[in-house]
Amino acid sequence: MPAETLDFEEPIAVLMKEIEALSMLPKTDARQSEIDSLKRRIDSIRGDLYRHLTPWQRVQVARHSNRPGLEDFIQRIFPNFVEIHGDRRFADDHAIMTGFAEYRGEPVLLVGHVKGRDTKEKIFRNFGYARPEGYRKALRAMKLAEKFDRPIVVFVDTPAAYPGIESEERGVAEAIAVNLREMMMLETPVIVIVSGEGGSGGALGIAIGDRILMQEFAIYSVIPPEGCAALVWRDSGKKAEAAEALKLTAPDLLGFKIIDEIISEPAGGAHTDHDAAARNVDTALGRALDEVRALDTQTRLNHRYDKFRNMGRLGFEFVEEL
């Protein structure tokens, strides 16, 4: 486990340094028991912290560089992965990965953003900012799954679609728009898991499905808190306030019926225990997939349509006059 701690985890960081110092010294029984007791205290403090995370702290956890992503889940719950590349139009985008694998013995198609972990990888993956080709590759792969009647599992984790000249030139807006329309009609089960950052249109562009699951500390927002703060407060330092106002946490979104279910995370967040995080994802995914697979295609499509059709129903009302 990497020792990288977030700013609000300061009390943990102090104890971790103590443990590090102790383990440098010759090992004795007394020292070992001291280390063990420190570890227990870390666990208990971490549990406390993570039970009361503020929205901004959740944003930090969702962006944690050790947060498990598509590749970590592939290693743990999707054996025999074969990656497929490119949109057959222009390029292979590295911020969105597609390919087929097995899930509980059955073939599935996997689609998801990848941010990369170390610097070299991050640059290769463009920090998870996909260009139009990424969205087009995703749709091409999903059509392949539809043709052969294989379920699709999507992992969402992106700051945004890439805001660059080439993105605009090659129609990133069109690529996302077409995905929204076409994913609504895919005649195969689609389960979406928001696993990290759900960054506005760049996330939504691959996030239409029969079930939208969200990990406990993931976020999903129309705009990054920094952007919101810069716009309305003219001060990007007000990001904590913005994170609060935007209601971007999993419990908020469950309340708005934007997501169907929260997947719980290990006590200190998914980044502290990839195996446990993957087990929870596995359980939720298996159940969701069974439920939607049991429906006939037309019913499933109607349910998918209704789900999105009703989003925002609690946000408007009819009035005679104001």
């Binding site: 728009a177 929204l180 329309r181 076409e182 609504m184 009609m185 759900g198 506005s200 249109g201 939504l204 239409i208 999903y220 927002s221 129309v222 705009i223 919101c228 716009l231 309305v232 935007l246 209601k247 971007l248 908020d252 979104l253 708005f256 934007i258 998918r304 349509y305 999105f308 059709r309 989003m311 925002g312 946000g315």
Partner: peptide, 25 residues
């Protein structure tokens, strides 16, 4: 999208595009 309605605004993109899929078909 209207920032002051958060992710609910974002979802209107999906909602309208879904309806347009039916119009298209």
């Amino acid at each position: 999208a209207r920032m002051m309605e958060g992710a609910l605004s974002l979802m209107q993109m999906a909602k309208i595009s879904g309806a347009l899929a039916r119009l298209d078909r």
